[in-house]
Amino acid sequence: MIRFLGSRLLRAAITIVMVVTFAFVVLRLSGDPAQIIMGADAPPEAVDAFRAAWGLDRPVWIQYFHYFGAILQGDLGRSMRDGRDAIVLVAERIPATLALTLPALAIKVGLGIPAGITAALHRNSFIDRAVMMLAVAGFTVPSFVLGLLLVLVFAVQLGWLPSGGQDSWRHAILPIITLGIGGAAVLARFTRSAMLEVLGQPYIRTASAKGVPWRAVVWGHALPNAAIPTVTIVGFMVGSLIAGAVVVESVFSWPGVGRLLVVAVANRDLAVVQCILLLVAMTMVTSNLIVDLLYGLLDPRLRNQPKRAAGIA
């Protein structure tokens, strides 16, 4: 188990290093960072001073280590728009985003998983078909379309809820529903297919053939086994709590991390973009790590072998 943990930590670290390297390489490839950050019309002396200050006149690999060192110390540069630390700017927005993504996650799990299980247990029934129809619809309707439709109905036509902004809890309802429904559809679909696969296994048939009540078969055998693939998807959703609302925040003018990212990209505010990128990578890697550990708890077979061997996911 310790070895399992060690290898997972190593892989997580490698991923983070790769993200940092990716940011560094892309930053260098995209042009002269001094010029980009100082602006095209900056005086040449100022650009040279910037280069010297940031060590940009030194060999690339030394720059790379300096860059790495700075990131390890939490120094992610300053926003070129208002000169504040990028990390502070991003941190300020996190609560607003979590105010949307956490309730949405509750909807996804609370709605998606039971719907998927119910559909699988009553295969080909009316419930199954309805769940699957909704799931396919939830998957194919992009979140901005769903969000705008909700605005059109509930804000414009009915006037029940505000269409955008962040003044009261009522403003959060439509974005949360938009986020939650789409995710619930994906989760329902996954849970259903995971359940169906497990229900087709010989040990389920054996259990029910030897007289175990169907309820006990489902709770004791089917659900724990179907939980394994489902946990992966939920883990991915947890990992995207920070940045999973990019589009929806834009639709509803919600001042969260996603909105900040879109504005930063449009303004090419590289320090902020890079900061968000690293933050997302950290969250993602952390939640992947937790998922791996849960895997180990749920499936003893996986404890001593790499996840890849478990099949093409």
């Binding site: 940011a23 892309v26 930053l27 490839l29 995209s30 940045a243 990019v246 589009v247 990212l261 879109v262 930063a264 990209v265 090419r268 505010d269 590289l270 973009v273 890079q274 968000i276 990128l277 997302v280």
Partner: peptide
């Protein structure tokens, strides 16, 4: 989506 946004920001 995040990766794509980052690349668009840089390039």
């Amino acid at each position: 989506l995040i990766l794509a946004l980052a690349v668009l920001a840089f390039f």
